[in-house]
Write a protein that binds this DNA or RNA. Structure first.
Lengths: 333, 333
DNA sequence: ATTATTTTGGCAATCGGTTGACAAAACTAT
DNA sequence: ATAGTTTTGTCAACCGATTGCCAAAATAAT
């Protein structure tokens, strides 16, 4: 067994400083409560002993662990990179530590992982959860929950406004002569998938275009590639994919079959993930302010924790935006 | 404040089952210690109350938290995601939870974050740390440490063998008529950077080629792009970049200047990150078995934890491999 | 039937902090 | 100088589990 001269405790400090342990606790946690000189002495002793508060000992009476959980469906999905990054930095600023868990796109794993982690954290951020509304509401009764890209009644969320980005994108296609659109959809249980579809539907109709949904599909490269036949069969000249990963898959499949993008087919993804501009042509996409989403999610959790509000009102000032790159263009003459 | 009917404790179970709390603890943690019938009754009560052990209460007497920390330099660097993924799944299998912290490529942040997290975990995995050897050895005295892609005396590590992949790559270049190589190096403090350079040097010389080091550089896209002039000036016909990110940056800069890859310049990255095959041409690279690296790192930590070994011997059976894609080819006639 | 042995479960101390209640000390005001 | 207030630090209970020790109960052996 690692011997590791075990960490100093407040009792060690108390002895060194010649005061009671509870005085040490007060000096360290409630500045001002204790006489300045005594506090200085205690702080000096703490420094000398290289004291670090034992987070578990503290968590026991207070119930606060200073940890937040982020649940993601797939840790290798680049969408999460930025969300996690934003969350990480916001959490660190407030002295919180992030715990990241992965559900591997399965609601069973997700429930499991959540059960393991929930007791250990002060709040939970669910990014692309597959849980049903009831489960989420139940969880929210135990610990503050914030949803990313999903809305559930009585649960806080951070959902950038879909409409601006989708509107711009549809406008762009209309301006380039497209008449027939397709949406290569993602998991049917995905709230954001439905939200995207509904917004697309609305704008396509508004601009006098037809649109069909092709799916559901797994939200990955492979599913994007495999869909090429159905896309072609649909007669659509432009296709939105549920996410960039699928868009990239589709781009590849098109290249393999000699289908020219954007000449014969325009492709627009969602998310603007890392690497979406590495492709040839670079993928046009509807970008989410992912870093800010992560930050806002942490803030929302902490707000619930600090205040006694049970629910933070829906809605955020975050917006999507269309990023025009090379995978979209004029419809074939 | 969230009311949350507070979680059931072993005392609640004890009352419901009509036994002593310590009996509950034994029944739940030491199967067999308690009469089967009593244990069944206790388990039933636990299930009925939806009991979850409070990890903090448990951690206090045992000192074990069932959590492991993974420290990464940059959470947006795709290299880490596979490592984290591997680590996550290995940890989950053993009932451990991963805590991920980011140093943002700064040794000060890293020391800070480590100080915050170390008391809360049973072991630490350092991926691309910027800490110096002494600090790492000091940390290793407190908690088991496993290094990824770095070696420090008396500290365990997981380092795939560089040589096979580099050898293959250099051979490939030699077979294609290259005579002058360059290595676009990464951070000078990076152990793996030095290891890669030394291996390249060795094989370049062995195959009768010249090689120069160009750097140090930040390990990101931008630094790769900015290096294009120096690469050209060096007269090298093939360049290895410290990582794929830099290789992709270089690829882009080359495209912008009309330099044909691989006709005029061959480029080989390291790591085989997500997206390295999205580029045009797709990037040839030296792949690390990153997922397995993550898994092995967790295993190494747990081995130290379970046994009383203080150090696990260096070396692993993991290897690098050259992945031939489109960014390398025959030297210009 | 009695003693020896093994199981089983309860008691109580412990981990390292936090915090309400309270008394001693210090300070203020009259 | 005395009573009234405020400040400061101590005491002790508590958070929820774990675990060594021990006695009671059950079982086995003679």
């Amino acid at each position: 067994m690692r011997v590791s001269k075990k960490a100093a405790t407040i009792y060690d400090i108390a002895q060194l400083a010649g005061v009671n342990p509870s005085t040490v606790s007060r000096a360290l946690t409630t500045p001002g409560r204790i006489n300045a000189k005594t506090e200085a002495k205690i702080r000096a002793a703490a420094t000398e002993l290289n004291y670090r508060v034992n987070p578990f000992a503290r968590a026991l009476p207070t119930g606060r662990t200073k940890m937040l959980a982020v649940m993601v469906a797939d840790i290798t999905n680049p969408v999460f990179f930025d969300v996690v990054r934003g969350a990480e930095s916001a959490a660190a600023e407030e002295g919180y530590t992030l715990v990241i868990a992965e559900s591997q796109e399965s609601s069973i794993n997700e429930a499991d992982a959540l059960e393991r982690i929930t007791p250990a954290v002060d709040g939970v951020i669910l990014a692309t959860t597959r849980l049903d509304d009831q489960t989420i509401q139940g969880l929210n009764r135990q610990k503050p929950v914030v949803l990313v890209n999903r809305e559930v009644e009585n649960v806080s969320d951070v959902v950038p406004d879909n409409l601006p980005g989708i509107k711009e994108a549809v406008e762009h296609l209309a301006a380039n002569g497209h008449k027939h659109l397709a949406f290569l959809s993602g998991p049917s249980a995905s709230w954001i998938n439905i939200a995207r579809w509904e917004a697309l539907l609305k704008f396509a109709v508004a601009y006098g275009m037809t649109i069909v949904e092709i799916g559901p599909n797994e939200p990955n490269l492979e599913a994007g590639s495999k869909a090429i036949e159905r896309i072609q069969a649909s007669g659509a000249t432009a296709v939105f994919t549920y996410n960039d990963l699928m868009g990239i898959g589709l781009l590849r499949a098109a290249a393999e079959r000699g289908i020219k993008v954007p000449k014969e087919l325009s492709i627009i993804g969602f998310d603007n993930i890392f690497g979406s501009d590495f492709t040839t042509p670079p993928l046009s996409t509807i970008a989410l302010p992912l870093v800010q989403v992560g930050r806002n999610a942490v803030e929302a959790v902490l707000r619930q924790l600090d205040s006694n509000e049970d629910v933070v009102p829906h809605g955020s000032d975050l917006q999507t935006a269309f990023i025009l790159r090379g995978s979209t263009g004029q419809v074939k003459a």
